[in-house]
Design a protein around this nucleic acid. Structure first.
Lengths: 138, 138
DNA sequence: TCCAGTTCTTGACTCAGTCCAGAACTCTCT
DNA sequence: AGAGAGTTCTGGACTGAGTCAAGAACTGGA
């Protein structure tokens, strides 16, 4: 991955210590919540406000640097793997989230039929199920 | 649709006035929030507690009588169209939600490749975009 | 270095959803 | 039909994610 500071500048985002730290935290902890990211950042640069974290995450995802996924019954998760149209499988029991490559080749779900005049720009797919560990327990 | 009271009994759910009213409200208002459903129910039977609404909705969706969808940045929505594997398109600007039939025939997304030992039982697809009206405005 | 414009901090706030104890109800058995 | 056991509903307090707002601190350009 290219230098984070450079990446921010290329996207017209002024570079600050907080934003750099948030960007690195998202890279290092896949599928982290905003809260977890704030924790990681605090471990690196001492302190950061909830607001700054949400602000940075919101800006990054708007610019397409990170992706935000929001499964039912859980706070939003963030990851830096973008541009390859992969999806997520989430365990109903323990909440574990793993990456899943698109089932039917390349982005089969991006074109909806009968779309009622909608202009679709993204398809979000979440697979719900049970992970190996939780099935072993029950 | 069959008699709601009968439907509840078949699923082993004791029949109460509140549950009947909630079930009817979900049928009559597609893609309604829990709050909106509570409002509709209050219009029918006078009064209902938030708790009873959540309880009924949770039980119905567990039994497969209704479906719960939870788009990012919006409270959970409920609908009674189940069993036909359709998906949803949501407008980023106004939040309007419409039904969309599956893009590539029959449930193309239900089998994930490289699923890390997950046992998938449901695939949830949300299309994000802009509806015709919002595009006309901007 | 200085200045304008933005970003960050702090703290209060909103909103969806959950938890809890007691009252009301449903269903079953007689 | 009546009574009892078990559940469901009510009302209110509570939690946790996320937003809003005002002022302090910082960034980048001149």
């Amino acid at each position: 991955m290219m230098d984070p500071a450079e990446l921010l500048r290329q996207n017209g985002i002024p570079v600050t210590a907080q934003r750099l730290a948030v960007l690195r935290a998202v890279s290092s902890v896949p599928h982290a919540t905003a809260d977890a990211i704030a924790e990681v950042v605090r471990g690196k640069i001492g302190t950061i406000s909830k607001q700054a974290v949400y602000d940075a995450l919101g800006m990054f995802s708007k610019k397409g640097l990170i992706r935000r996924i929001q499964p039912a019954g859980s706070p939003a998760l963030f990851e830096d793997r973008v541009g390859d149209n992969h999806h997520h499988a989430i365990c109903r029991m323990c909440g574990k989230t793993v990456d899943v490559d698109c089932a039917v080749g390349k982005a089969p779900c991006l074109t909806a039929s009968g779309d009622s005049g909608f202009h679709i720009d993204e398809a979000e797919v979440i697979y719900w199920g049970t992970c190996a560990e939780c099935r072993a327990v029950s």
